[in-house]
Computed example of a mutant assay.
Amino acid sequence: MSRASPDDGMPLSHRHRRKLLTLLLMFTALFGAIFVVVNFFGARYALMAVEMALTLLTLSLLPVVRTTYHLRRWCLCYLGLLYAATIYALASPTTSVTVFSWVMIMPLTAHLLLGRRLVGLFSVFYLAVAAGLFFWRFGTDVAVSAPGATANIVAVTIWTYLFSYFYEASRESAEQQLSQQALTDSLTGLANRVHLEQAFHRAANEGALPLSVLILDLDHFKRINDEHGHACGDAVLKKIADTLREQTRVDDVVCRLGGEEFCILLPRTDSDAAYRMAERLREAIEALCCRHNDALLALTASIGVASTVKRGGHLDPMLHAADEKLYQAKFGGRNRVVC
Rank of each mutant, 00 (worst) to 15 (best):
T68Q: 06
H228E: 07
A278Y: 01
V97C: 01
F31E: 08
S145T: 08
D272M: 06
E261H: 03
G332N: 01
Y165A: 14
D141I: 14
R116A: 04
R193Y: 10
R72S: 07
A85Y: 11
I87K: 00
H292F: 11
L25I: 05
D270K: 03
F134W: 01
I87M: 08
L54E: 09
S2M: 11
Y83N: 13
V253M: 13
L25T: 03
G80Q: 02
T160Y: 10
R72L: 03
L183V: 01
E279M: 05
V37Q: 13
A273R: 07
V65L: 10
A301P: 09
G207T: 10
D217Q: 10
M106S: 11
L20W: 02
F138G: 05
Q176Y: 09
F40Q: 10
L281D: 03
F35A: 13
R3A: 11
L54C: 11
L218A: 03
M104H: 02
Q180W: 01
M48A: 15
L30I: 12
G259T: 07
R336V: 00
A53F: 04
A128P: 06
G207A: 12
H201L: 06
D242W: 03
V64Y: 08
F100I: 03
D316C: 12
L187Y: 03
L59C: 14
F31N: 13
R282Y: 01
A295P: 01
C290P: 00
L211S: 10
G258K: 09
L79K: 01
R44F: 08
T248R: 15
I105K: 04
H16G: 11
H195L: 14
A151F: 03
R44N: 15
G233P: 08
L297C: 12
P267D: 08
V213S: 13
R276P: 00
E260P: 02
P107M: 05
R15N: 02
Y78F: 15
T140D: 14
S212T: 07
V99K: 03
D252Y: 10
G312L: 11
C77V: 11
L23W: 06
I215W: 04
L297N: 12
M10T: 08
G120L: 15
F100W: 02
F163Y: 12
M106A: 13
Y161F: 14
A43G: 06
L216N: 05
P317C: 04
V337G: 02
I158A: 15
A46K: 04
L127M: 08
P93A: 12
D242M: 10
H292M: 04
V338Q: 12
G229P: 02
Q180L: 07
P93Q: 07
V119W: 02
R116S: 04
M104T: 07
R171F: 12
V37N: 13
S92D: 15
P11E: 04
R73V: 01
A89Q: 11
G9A: 10
V38D: 12
P267E: 09
F27Q: 09
D294T: 05
V36L: 13
L30W: 14
A46M: 09
K330H: 01
